[in-house]
Design a protein around this nucleic acid. Structure first.
Lengths: 341, 341
DNA sequence: CTGAAAGCGCTAACAA
DNA sequence: TTGTTAGCGCTTTCAG
């Protein structure tokens, strides 16, 4: 048949390498994949030819022929508040850099949750959070695509997941504040469509009740994680007649906003208002009062997730399934003080 | 004789669809690619079969057979300060969402600049900024891969680029401050390995000299874009015996830090110190004093770049080459005031 | 240790 | 309007 006239200067293929090296393409393939044995002399010649021709194998052809894929998709659901958060960038950074090291191609999917993913595009999928897109995960699972979920604990699906102890982290904040003598503790929550935010709220509630404090609804304010809403929440809280003496904020970036508002309204931090954030965002370090916060191992979570997925993808044997919850850690800095009684 | 079903749930191929629909695979391919003509009745049957089988074509096979690729790589060089910036996220957001709409697969490469890219992995490449990785771009260009550079103006390479008028933006800031009567104007620059930061510095210099002010080296402080260094810079500037009355900061996030420092040191903003940022980061809106800044069309830049690349990739004809510089816009809010004389 | 050859799933020229 | 069929570039048996 007539070949399609290619416009672009056709780049050289494994065949060219084979010819130049004076071996068969099978041999070239062997040295490419570092498997099977090739006489050292031939290896060298092939490697030489590859370098000389600047040969790069076609990923598509490799995938098609081998059935394997070294492409990992990172699926991030698009929702209103997602880009306010420090955390998206941390995730991308963690996974992106590890991918380069592992020679894995990273397919980024910012999805609107209801569209279906191209499951054949990748050999494995990392779901970063699950927000309205459980069906995407289920589809992928049904199609037999290896999956890992991070930042979300999914109990009822047979899938690996790695999340962070938001509940425990939040509870420890309350315990800490109580230990400083606080009894009027408020909470500014993040977007409750995220599991993280709702677990932090839950942890707050748990902490309050375990410490035999009364849970006051007016002390709980829900936001979308944005600084704008944090500002409103802070104003509302501070202007209350019976205002809280401490506030646990669901993200550092919001906590910093709360701190700013407090100052503007003439409150001293931490003397008049103790503030605790969540994230361990480096920005928290720079103000005049370093922010007490909860450190969560985001990069580690992301990278563990990728490693697990990689194992899933490259082994034929079924791997054991894990539902890991990584510990969080209270980082005490300067934004809280004991309450004087 | 009946074949045993294979263990692995081998997903069905175009052949299965063809069989179910009672047509040839060529016909299926035609409806898949919406090209060539297919009798309406057959179209329906094929579409039906596809739905029924939940068929998704193999991207690799499509690419291999057609020579085309709907994969776009976004190359972001990894450097120290990159993740401080609002801008990376905006870029990813702009390109990521448009990719979904255009059914383009996005390959994200956070590269360490010296490693070579897998040029066969994508049909086109967007370089977001060029930081120590010009050779990657040149390699891609030489290999005939369509490329677009965003956020960096490359004069000496035959490549499309779309950047933002950092120079003009910076100059307009100085002009504005001068119009308010300021004569002692400082600049806190970002990481000068980025073209954006160095053009802003250049624009500042230009503005100063065009307005016949003297350029004072001690008024120029270089940072890595982090809030930490912004804080140090601000302290240094404010504590100078002959301190500036206005400061132009190379990013909003740093400008906010400067504002915070000023307040801590007892300066009123804008009465004692006028501050201008760069980015139009929404965070700038929330403080007690809304930040005057320079708006740059990041999302637009990213999306225009992707569109251009897409055109390059899907047309056989050579496209005209463009070096666009999108205008920036001074957004006057509350952080500057006229100087009393 | 090496090479020949059979596909992998799809596209697109060509024939019908 | 359709079906037939030759590759796309590589991996992977299977002989040698």
């Amino acid at each position: 048949m007539v070949r399609k006239p290619s416009i672009a200067p056709k780049s050289n293929s494994i065949e060219d390498v084979a010819r130049l090296a004076g071996v068969s393409i099978a041999t070239v393939s062997r040295v490419l994949n570092k498997q099977g044995s090739v006489k050292e002399k031939n290896r060298i010649r092939v490697l030489d030819a590859i370098k000389q021709l600047k040969f790069q194998p076609s990923v598509s052809a490799q995938r098609l022929a081998s059935g394997r894929s070294n492409v990992v998709a990172l699926v991030i659901p698009r929702y209103e508040g997602m880009f306010y958060s420090f955390y998206v960038l941390e995730l991308i950074r963690g996974i992106g850099t590890l991918c380069e090291a592992l020679k894995i191609d990273l397919l980024l999917q910012l999805t609107d949750s209801r569209s279906l993913l191209n499951l054949k595009g990748a050999g494995g999928i990392i779901f970063a959070d699950l927000i309205g897109n459980r069906s995407q995960l289920e589809d992928a699972l049904n199609a037999g695509v290896p999956c890992v979920v991070i930042n979300n604990h999914v109990e009822d699906l047979k899938v690996n997941c790695i999340s962070v102890d938001n509940l425990g982290g939040a509870e420890s904040v309350v315990n800490y504040l109580v230990s400083l003598g606080h009894k009027k503790i408020a909470h500014i929550s993040g977007d409750l469509i995220t599991q993280a935010a709702s677990m932090r709220l839950e942890g707050y509630r748990l902490g309050i009740s375990k410490n035999n404090l009364s849970l006051r609804q007016e002390y709980i304010i829900k936001t979308d994680y944005s600084r704008g809403q944090a500002r409103q929440a802070a104003e509302k809280l501070i202007k209350m007649p019976d205002h809280p003496t401490a506030v646990f904020v669901s993200s550092d970036s919001m906590a910093l906003e709360v701190m700013a508002v407090a100052r503007e309204l003439g409150k001293r931090v931490p003397q008049d208002l103790s503030i605790v954030g969540f994230d361990d965002n480096p920005s928290g370090l720079y103000g005049p009062v370093a922010l007490t916060t909860v450190r969560q191992p985001l990069v580690k979570m992301a990278q563990e997730g990728l490693k697990k997925l990689n194992a899933l993808m490259s082994s034929d044997k079924p791997q054991k399934m894990e539902k890991a919850i990584l510990p969080t850690e209270l980082i005490i800095r300067e934004s809280c003080s004991p309450i004087r009684s």
